Amino acid sequence: MKNRTESTENLGICSREACRKHFTPDTLLLEYDKPIHFVQSQFECGRNYYIVWRVSWAIYHVACVIGTGILMKNNDGGTDARWFIYLTNWSYTMLTLDTLLQFIAIIYVNKRREDIIYDACSQMPWFLKAIWCIYNVSNCSALVVTLLYWSLLQDVSFGNIVVHLLNGVYVVVNMPLTAIPVRIYHFYQLMIFGTAYVMFSYVYETAGGIGYNDEKYIYPQMAWKYPEIAITYSVLGVFVAIPVCHAFFFLMYWTRVTVYERNLQRTVAVIDSETAAAIKRSDKSITTTRTESC
């Protein structure tokens, strides 16, 4: 049991060594020596239960993204392609892609990559790197969309609750359950996503594009005919809201792993004490037997 105890003592995410590892330049990359964490729950609730969790949300989000796209009609009653111009739908598409790819990855790894399942692989395969990036972007963008929508627009309807509230609730609830890590320096991925949308909105509006109700902008806060206001909201969104939300998820990850490791240490301590007691009873029994034989 000595080796097992030592391994848990070295896990502490709050240790000085762990803190240094989280803030090294290497964490900018998509390298990780435990690929198994991308296909299991943090608290090891059971492989089948986790698969059910993943497939349920994949089905739900796919249905929602298809439903919102179909329900958005143009003046002729057909499906409106302007569905694709909104940040909400960019974010929800990423969220749907994330849940779908995670489900596919779990099935694939369980069927074809036993080295990952049995924790015998320390190299991140390319498809898990892609999922990690999408996971980072979808988490933060969902929370940013939820916060911005209910602080700026606040139009209450069933559809808006689905794509502007439940998306944020999902990513917050999912974070404590999954074992996927969060790297503090990965906020650059989200800033690239945010910057891409800002550039798209500028090009779309200046090219004569119109919003769903034929407005000459996508969002009133980002109407580029008022560049000072549009730039202000864009800078606040990309350089303030995104890093803050990513820091929030990093703290959730930090807390999740800390709770897991402390529970693991308690479990190992209990097992050690029970093992020591069993050995003592065994030694006592052997001593008694020898005494009686003499």
Score class of each variant (00 low, 15 high):
I107S: 04
A81L: 12
K111H: 05
G78Q: 04
N89W: 09
N89P: 00
T96E: 12
W53V: 00
V52W: 13
F84W: 03
R112V: 02
L87Q: 09
T88C: 03
S91Q: 10
Y86M: 07
D98S: 14
F103A: 13
Q102P: 07
D76S: 07
T79L: 15
Y60E: 09
T79I: 15
Y108Q: 11
L71G: 15
S56Q: 13
I107N: 10
L101K: 08
W90I: 02
G67W: 06
N75T: 01
T93F: 14
Y86Q: 06
L97N: 07
A63Q: 08
L97P: 02
W90A: 05
G78S: 04
K73G: 00
I66S: 11
C64R: 13
S91V: 08
A58D: 00
H61V: 06
A105Q: 04
D80W: 02
N74M: 00
Y108M: 15
W53S: 01
N75Q: 07
I70V: 14
R112I: 01
Y86R: 06
L71D: 13
T88P: 06
V55W: 04
T99L: 07
M94T: 13
L95T: 03
G67S: 11
G77D: 00
M72Y: 05
S56R: 02
A81F: 14
A63W: 06
T93L: 12
T99R: 15
A58N: 06
L97H: 06
M72H: 05
W83C: 02
T68Q: 11
V55K: 05
Y108S: 11
I66V: 13
Y60F: 09
A63G: 08
G78D: 09
I106F: 03
D80T: 01
I85V: 14
Y108H: 12
I70E: 04
Y60I: 10
K111T: 07
W53A: 01
W57R: 03
